[in-house]
Amino acid sequence: MALNTSNDFLLSVLEGLVDGILLVSPNGELMFANSAATQLCQKLNPKEHYPIEVWRSCEALIESREWYGDRPLVIESELQIEDHQTYRIRVQWLQLDEPCLLVRLEDQQRSLQSLAVTEAKKFGLTPREAEVWFLKRCNLSRKEIAARLFITIDTVKKHLGNIQSKRQAHQESWC
Rank of each mutant, 00 (worst) to 15 (best):
A2Y: 05
S6K: 12
S6G: 08
S6H: 06
N7Q: 05
F9Q: 08
L11G: 02
S12E: 06
V13R: 04
L14C: 03
L14G: 06
G16I: 12
L22P: 08
L23G: 03
S25A: 15
P26M: 09
P26W: 13
N27R: 15
N27Q: 12
G28W: 00
E29V: 07
L30H: 10
F32Q: 04
F32S: 03
F32R: 06
F32D: 02
N34I: 05
S35R: 13
A37S: 01
T38Y: 00
Q39G: 12
C41Y: 00
C41A: 01
Q42S: 09
Q42Y: 00
L44D: 03
P46Q: 02
P46H: 04
P51G: 06
I52C: 08
V54W: 08
W55D: 03
R56E: 14
E59N: 08
A60E: 14
L61S: 03
L61H: 06
S64W: 01
S64M: 06
R65P: 02
Y68C: 13
D70G: 12
D70K: 15
D70A: 13
L73E: 04
I75N: 01
E76I: 11
E76W: 07
S77G: 15
L79G: 01
Q80H: 04
I81M: 10
E82A: 14
D83G: 07
H84L: 08
H84E: 13
Q85T: 15
I89E: 09
V91I: 03
V91P: 00
Q92N: 12
Q92G: 13
L94V: 13
L96Q: 06
L96D: 12
L96P: 04
D97L: 05
E98V: 12
E98H: 15
P99W: 03
P99K: 00
C100V: 10
L101R: 03
V103M: 08
R104V: 11
R104W: 03
D107A: 09
S111D: 10
S111V: 14
L112M: 07
Q113W: 07
Q113I: 09
A116G: 07
T118D: 07
T118G: 09
K121L: 14
K121W: 13
F123P: 02
F123Y: 09
P127S: 14
P127T: 12
E129M: 09
A130H: 05
E131C: 11
V132I: 15
V132M: 07
W133Y: 14
R137M: 12
R137T: 10
N139C: 05
L140H: 11
L140Y: 10
S141P: 01
R142H: 07
K143E: 13
E144G: 08
E144Q: 13
I145Q: 00
A147M: 09
A147D: 11
A147T: 14
F150N: 10
I151A: 08
I151K: 08
I151M: 13
I151W: 08
T152P: 03
I153A: 04
D154M: 04
K158S: 15
N162I: 00
K166L: 11
R167P: 01
R167G: 03
Q168P: 04
A169M: 12
W174K: 15
